[in-house]
Structures are given as structure tokens and as C-alpha cells.
């Protein structure tokens, strides 16, 4: 079982968290939505797998490159 780090590509605020630990996700499923540049920018699952943990909370400000979640594939 491989673990995949999901990082933010942009500085912004966590707008919505769409999944929780234990959820099964398909590749390109929306995990988290970041509010940045006045847009709701989705963070997509890079591969299919299971959500191992979510490391941020809604409304939390985040930086580019920050670890948001881990997936197990």
C-alpha cells in the first residue's frame, strides 16, 4: 500500500472539505475546495484510493505546497 501526499498548489483558504478519512475516492474526485483568487479551486485525487487523513480544517488559511491530505492506494 502506497501513501500519497496531497499538497496545495496555491495559497488560499480551505473552503470546503468534501471527503473524510476512510472514504474511497476515484482518480480526479474532488477532495477539498480551496478559496483563492476569488475562485473555488478543487483539489483532486491524484489517484484512486482511500482517504487516510485530512490535515486541514475548513476556513483554515493554507500556503502553497502545504500538505492537505494523505491517500492510501
Amino acid at each position: 500500500m502506497a501513501s500519497i501526499d496531497v499538497k496545495s498548489e496555491i495559497t488560499g483558504t480551505i473552503w470546503k472539505i468534501e471527503v473524510k478519512a476512510g472514504d474511497k475516492v476515484a482518480e480526479e474526485d474532488v477532495l477539498i475546495i480551496i478559496e483563492s483568487m476569488k475562485m473555488e479551486i478543487p483539489v483532486l485525487a491524484p489517484e484512486a484510493g482511500t482517504v487516510a487523513e485530512i490535515l486541514v480544517k475548513e476556513e483554515e488559511p493554507i500556503k502553497e505546497g502545504q500538505l492537505l491530505a494523505r491517500l492510501h492506494t
Binding site: 498548489e9 496555491i10 483563492s36 483568487m37 476569488k38 475562485m39 479551486i41 478543487p42
Partner: peptide, 8 residues
Amino acid sequence: NPMVYGGA
């Protein structure tokens, strides 16, 4: 591409 940086 609005999916990345809102297209900026």
C-alpha cells in the same frame, strides 16, 4: 484554465 490558480 480556471482549475489552476483560477486561470491567473
